[in-house]
Computed example of a mutant assay.
Amino acid sequence: MLVQGGCHCGNISFELTWEPDPSEIPARACDCSFCTKHHGVWTSNPAGTLSVKVEDESLLSRYFFGTRTAQFHVCARCGVVPLVTSTVDEHVYAVVNVNAFNSVAPSLLRPVPVSFDGESIELRLARRKRNWIADVEFVATGR
């Protein structure tokens, strides 16, 4: 299954290849203040591949907070946060926001609330390495 998504204005877009086709897509609704305010509901397929395009880098804002171990990719034009990356052992991992999907049937999404309060940095990075998308590519658009 090819999942396409991105921010509202199209400056940040992504394609997530999800193999095999999922019978459901986990949708983790983080309860931290940033995700709550931005409606961040995250998913990942560790066996998937993610290709990210940014049309205008000057309109890409990167935001860190809390443990500063995750980078939220925010479109400075429309304010949408379509993905988050984390570098673990010099490798980039990612999750994507299901609210940024373009054409996935809502019936495929399985929302579940999550809280990472109290999680140590070591456990957090190990979880990301295990559960986040490991094949992440940022594609130059030529602009």
Rank of each mutant, 00 (worst) to 15 (best):
C30Y: 03
C32T: 02
C32A: 02
C32G: 02
C32P: 07
S33V: 04
F34N: 05
F34C: 01
C35K: 00
C35E: 01
T36I: 04
T36K: 11
T36C: 07
T36S: 10
H38G: 00
H38Y: 13
H39D: 12
W42T: 01
T43V: 03
T43H: 04
T43M: 09
S44K: 03
S44A: 15
A47P: 00
G48K: 06
T49W: 01
T49I: 07
L50W: 09
K53N: 08
K53L: 04
V54L: 08
V54W: 06
E55Q: 12
D56G: 02
L59H: 08
L60D: 03
S61D: 13
S61V: 13
F64C: 06
F64M: 10
F65L: 11
F65N: 11
F65V: 09
F65G: 07
T67R: 14
T69G: 02
T69V: 14
T69D: 09
T69I: 12
Q71F: 11
F72D: 05
H73L: 14
H73R: 05
V74N: 12
A76M: 06
A76R: 14
C78Y: 07
C78M: 06
V81L: 11
T87A: 15
V88A: 11
V88M: 11
D89L: 10
H91T: 14
Y93Q: 09
Y93K: 10
Y93F: 15
A94T: 08
V96Q: 03
V96C: 09
N97P: 07
N97E: 00
N97T: 02
N99G: 08
N102S: 13
S103I: 03
S103F: 07
V104L: 04
V104N: 02
V104R: 02
V104H: 03
A105N: 15
P106L: 02
P106R: 14
S107L: 02
L109S: 05
L109P: 01
P111L: 01
P113C: 00
P113K: 06
V114Y: 04
V114D: 04
F116Y: 12
F116M: 09
F116S: 11
G118A: 09
G118L: 11
G118N: 06
S120P: 08
S120L: 06
S120Y: 04
S120T: 15
I121V: 15
E122C: 02
L123N: 15
L123H: 14
R127T: 07
R127H: 10
R127C: 05
R128T: 13
R128W: 15
K129H: 13
K129E: 15
R130P: 03
R130A: 13
R130N: 12
N131A: 10
N131I: 01
I133S: 08
A134C: 09
D135V: 03
D135S: 14
V136L: 03
E137Y: 01
A140W: 04
T141L: 01
G142Q: 05
